[in-house]
Write a protein that binds this DNA or RNA. Sequence first.
DNA 1: TGTACATCAGTGAACGCGCGTTCACTGATGTAC
DNA 2: TGTACATCAGTGAACGCGCGTTCACTGATGTAC
Lengths: 217, 217
Amino acid sequence: MKKATVERILDAAEVEFGAHGFVETSLRTITGKAGVNLAAVNYHFGSKKGLIQAVTDRFFEPLTVGLQAHLQELAKAEISHHDALVQIYRGLLLEALRIAQGNPARLVLFARLVNSAYNQSQGHLRKHLTHQYAPVFMLFIQAMREHMPSMDHEQFFWRFHQLMGMMVFTLSNSEALTAICAAEYAQQRGLPEIVQQLIATLVAAAEAPVVAIEKLA
Amino acid sequence: MKKATVERILDAAEVEFGAHGFVETSLRTITGKAGVNLAAVNYHFGSKKGLIQAVTDRFFEPLTVGLQAHLQELAKAEISHHDALVQIYRGLLLEALRIAQGNPARLVLFARLVNSAYNQSQGHLRKHLTHQYAPVFMLFIQAMREHMPSMDHEQFFWRFHQLMGMMVFTLSNSEALTAICAAEYAQQRGLPEIVQQLIATLVAAAEAPVVAIEKLA
DNA sequence: TGTACATCAGTGAACGCGCGTTCACTGATGTAC
DNA sequence: TGTACATCAGTGAACGCGCGTTCACTGATGTAC
């Protein structure tokens, strides 16, 4: 049973976008890998931008649904700030892992998508993400903020994005890093171990003492 | 007194590469801003890759010289692990700030350059960086490692790259983040404040307790 | 049940465009005798 | 000091290529009467 054209395009696009980014992946590469006609992308998705947004939604829709449920569960539980922070990141990253289905390229795609929320080069994607998923983002940020009580709004803002950076970079380069790790330390690490280490450092960084914002001498 | 063509190209390239990345910046944009002939890039630098490497060297050569001196000074001093870590990152980031001369786009360029050491899409740059500046990188890593004594090699490896990620992301998106910060919190932050906050979180994350590497449940 | 038409998924070939690069050329400066 | 030649910085126009997109078209399926 041959998969429908739309799905085969999305499957191929997901992998290629993850591996080489949006700009450096051509529609010819995607349609080639998918075994469909070049014009099929524009027929089904209208444009390359449309395809990028479709790929985004196929990942983010289940992710945000799962994350929202997880965060709402968490809000009811009475646990320490520390455990809550761990659970928040576990919720986000396990959900992402689940959707990526163990495929590293898909997790890299997730990191690229988050990154592009800051990046002006994919302006349409930034708009799409913020318009489409703002409520869940807000929920996530609020949950974090609740459990980092010693900071004022601006301090939290900077800290939050520092953590985002750590997460995005680590996931984006997970393939390069596991390769180096295998070569240097003879350890074959998978995504679950990487994510586990990542969560530990993220939470520790979230809990780091607050420093007043002032100019660097 | 009109600047020489080579310098004017490098100046423009630095800014444009910082603002839009290597792939998404065309030679026509650069030569346009520099006010020189399109063919001048290939005449002076051989190719676009050659230009990228020249831009890299103009930033990294003074950076690595300064950083090396700073690290060697530091090795003599008898200070705590914590203070040493602070000084290591201060050395790196103040040197980068100095070379960027307060121009945010130049600091973004620095972040892009570090990032491309991991990124396969600019393979030539990755090779160039590792071949050209490996000794200073090693020195930097060794200095870090010395002051994070409770980790084994592999744990240090992962932690180190998590910190790199935080740094690269924060600097890469410093313009977007300062813009959001100004809009949301009515605070006009400059690079020195951002770097100061960054160093605090980097060091805290470096000092975070070690966690055994195992699969995530 | 049969026929005419509409809709839809998909195709092959071409379009215009921007890209990095190339090349023959110009004009100024330096050098040898 | 003058002349002939070589070298060098820079130029204008074109080249070939890969890109996203478009368009006329095909063949299959659905629908109305």
